[in-house]
């Protein structure tokens, strides 16, 4: 089966910094893949390359089997993105923002779709709220509603639970799980939150210094390095106790 997403030997150099150094991985249909790594490992850079926001120094990205830069618009129509670092225009009402993006994504019957998402994300009370006045948790859910408008086949999330309280974070994770099971949604998820990865992701790719240090299910990864938990593994990498040379 063709992978939903294929990153092939991605290299990204910013001046003297090498942010990605030959990163390759794939996301299978219906799979939820976590990109894990310490700060500066290259997660956001990878995400930006996959979205066409940044061009790679070398390497290719294929989504739905199509080359990203040759079929960018066609691909963007069927994927979506949400991150803790973007927001919808703060000076519009929630329903106005969702209406604008529903039209941008050419959502058929936008009103029904928006109603359904508002219901799903439990934000009906925010429909007429000013987007800029939402709390972090509310804003994340509204961003997610935007990211689900076009019923994406692939959802890219850059630290979606950053700045959420544990209750809301838990709800977001459950929702993502639900969508994945129900709609066969593929998800690429970056986080440095182990809980996120363990709960949401079928498999993880651990990035370090812009390349894959290891990959597998969370259980496989921690077992491979004789660690008691994924968190313990993460700390090991961050403190330099585990590196590529130490690979068994």
């Amino acid at each position: 089966m063709t992978p939903i997403l294929e990153a092939d030997r991605l290299v990204k150099v910013f001046g003297a910094t090498s942010a990605l150094d030959g990163l390759s991985f794939t996301v299978a249909p219906g799979e939820s893949l976590g990109l894990l790594g310490v700060n500066g490992a290259g997660k956001t850079t990878a995400m930006n390359l996959l979205l066409g926001l940044t061009t790679p120094t070398s390497g290719t990205v294929r989504i739905f089997g199509l080359d990203l830069w040759k079929h960018r618009i066609e691909i963007l129509r069927q994927i979506n993105f949400s991150s803790a670092y973007t927001s919808l225009p703060s000076n519009l009402l929630v329903w106005q923002n969702l209406t604008v993006f529903a039209r941008l994504y050419r959502v058929p019957r936008p009103k029904q779709r928006i109603d359904a998402l508002i219901e799903l994300l439990d934000i009906s009370h925010l429909r007429k709220a000013v987007t800029g006045k939402l709390s972090a948790g509310e804003s994340t859910r509204v961003n997610l509603a935007k990211a689900l408008l076009n019923k994406p086949r692939l959802l890219l999330l850059d630290e979606p639970t950053a700045s959420l309280d544990p209750d809301i974070a838990d709800r977001v994770r459950k929702l993502l799980r639900h969508l994945q099971a129900q709609d066969g949604l593929s998800i690429l998820y970056t986080s440095h939150n182990m809980r996120d990865i363990e709960e949401v992701c079928d498999r993880l790719v651990f990035l370090h210094g812009g390349k894959v240090l290891t990959e597998g299910t969370p259980g496989e990864v921690q077992a491979r390095f004789n660690r008691t938990s994924l968190e313990d593994f993460f700390i090991g990498v961050a403190r330099g106790e585990i590196d590529a040379i130490g690979l068994p």
């Binding site: 926001l53 618009i73 066609e74 994927i79 993105f81 973007t86 993006f101 800029g132």
Partner: peptide
């Protein structure tokens, strides 16, 4: 600038907008 100020630019650039 409006898109920059409201941190909306990425949303527009990852949408199918030429």
């Amino acid at each position: 600038l409006e898109d920059v100020w409201t941190r909306n630019l990425l949303n527009v650039f990852v949408a199918p907008v030429r």
